[in-house]
Computed example of a mutant assay.
Amino acid sequence: MNRIVPSLWFGDNNCEEAVNYYVTVFPNSQVHFMQYYPKEELSEHFVGMVGKVITAEFSLDGQKFIGLDGGPVFKFSEAISFTIECKDQDEIDYYWARLSHVPAAEQCGWVKDRFGLSWQIVPENIGRLQQTDAQIQVLMGMKKIIIAELEAAG
């Protein structure tokens, strides 16, 4: 059970698409439920939202999340991101290929996906791989982290 559950407000009304995509990317993931906005005549607050997600509960690799379609008022920013600690280069490559969608946003393991959410795709031993000035310099020049290059700089 997760006591702290991140809630994701999808501003482009693509919550359902995003949730269904994310559960294909991460192991041990599932959609628990999706509830949709009711008919517009029930409330002035629902105008234009019929068929959109009012609440989605899902888990990604065992971490529970809540998502919703909220309209364009709020957007994701790099101020919040999710870190994926990877066991090896193959795992880094796997997540990078599936989540990186905005090349201009890539830096030091950070990517932005097609839904605007930022992720940090790093080796689980990133602390050990940035102990020297040389390693930090190499890391600062990377987009996708290449473990072998950081080890060589050590």
Rank of each mutant, 00 (worst) to 15 (best):
M1K: 02
N2I: 02
N2H: 04
I4E: 02
P6S: 04
G11Q: 00
D12G: 03
C15A: 09
E16M: 03
E16C: 01
E17R: 03
A18E: 04
V19A: 03
Y21F: 10
Y22W: 13
V23T: 13
V23H: 04
P27D: 09
N28L: 13
N28W: 08
S29D: 03
Q30N: 13
V31M: 13
V31G: 13
F33S: 15
F33G: 14
M34S: 14
Y36T: 09
Y36M: 14
Y37D: 05
K39A: 13
K39W: 06
K39P: 05
E41L: 08
E41Q: 13
L42Q: 07
S43K: 12
H45C: 11
F46H: 08
M49W: 11
V50I: 10
I54F: 03
I54L: 13
I54V: 15
T55V: 15
A56L: 07
E57C: 13
E57F: 04
F58Q: 05
S59G: 05
D61V: 00
D61L: 01
Q63F: 04
K64R: 04
F65N: 00
F65A: 00
F65Q: 00
L68S: 07
L68Q: 05
L68R: 02
L68I: 09
P72G: 01
P72N: 02
V73A: 00
F74C: 03
F76G: 04
S77G: 11
S77N: 08
E78D: 12
E78S: 14
S81F: 09
T83N: 14
K87M: 15
Q89Y: 15
D90R: 15
I92A: 12
D93M: 11
D93P: 14
Y94Q: 09
H101C: 11
V102Y: 08
A104K: 05
A105K: 03
A105R: 01
A105Q: 07
A105L: 04
E106W: 12
E106V: 12
E106N: 11
C108K: 00
V111G: 01
V111I: 06
V111W: 01
K112S: 08
R114Y: 00
F115P: 06
L117I: 10
W119K: 02
Q120M: 10
Q120F: 05
I121R: 02
V122T: 10
V122N: 06
P123E: 10
E124C: 14
R128I: 14
Q131E: 13
Q131S: 08
Q131W: 02
D133R: 08
D133Y: 07
D133G: 14
A134S: 14
Q135D: 15
V138E: 14
K143L: 12
I145T: 11
I145Y: 01
E149R: 01
A152K: 11
G154T: 06
